[in-house]
Amino acid sequence: MILRRRSFVIKRMPGFTLLALACFFALYMPLAPLVVYSFNEGNNIALWEGFSLRWYQAAWENQLVQSAAIRSIVVATIASIIATVLATMVALATTRTRPYRGQTIIYAMVNQPLVVPEIVTAVALLILFALIKQATNYHGYAYLVIAHSAFCIPFAYLPIRARLEGMDRVLETAAADLYATPWRAFKRVTLPLMLPGIFAGAMLAFVISLDDVVITEFVKSAGQDTLPTYMLGQLRRSITPEINAISTVLLGISVLMVTLIFFLSRKKTA
């Protein structure tokens, strides 16, 4: 009798490969026509009339797209910086301290935007900001920036926290042993080692802010369209492949960011 010990290899499960392929197909197939028709010569988003870059050019020259894109990038940049700084502080406070009462509550509160339905947050912010607008008569971008910073915090927090948890605390002990004061130990050891996590968090926050529709739609004042809300507005009128072109560019940026995050978070911790 031959005894063969087999390890569990998921590839050997019957139908697994097929299922995986089906999932990938369902995830990525809808993107294909979007990208393909962004290069369409004609005005139709479902009728191929030949290859052209005219819609990219049209989008590039469209004043409304330009200003919405700049607004999106400015808001996303400021919001992701604020969110990352706050998230770094929270991550340090939840991993680099002795366990204390209320630590889980802080954890839950930081991650609250991941759990509460976005529409609820959006309505809540709408009401709150309406009250503030009435009282102060200020209608600027600060509302958008504050709202974006708030829901970006957990996305920035998670990779930073993961990085800190993967870092051996004995390194900071060693720095203290070698005459480094707590601040210098942070500057010379903790910060450089957690930097890949901070970058990953910032990029994730940036992408999340760039993509947001629901909260932005509720919070923005007149003339404060970001790229996604501008696109949503366009869909209510006639649809041209210009929308496809803008979407394809956004898709490209997201893919690039996610790839970067992937490589950053793979960097070794020890």
Binding site: D168, V170, L171, T173, A174, A175, D177, A185, L193
Partner: peptide, 19 residues
């Protein structure tokens, strides 16, 4: 505090700074 003591440690895990 540890950083004020003229005493140094060789750690079991070495704790060398990887960066």
């Amino acid at each position: 505090a540890p950083y004020d003591r003229p005493v140094n440690t060789v750690f079991q895990s070495y704790a060398l700074f990887p960066h």
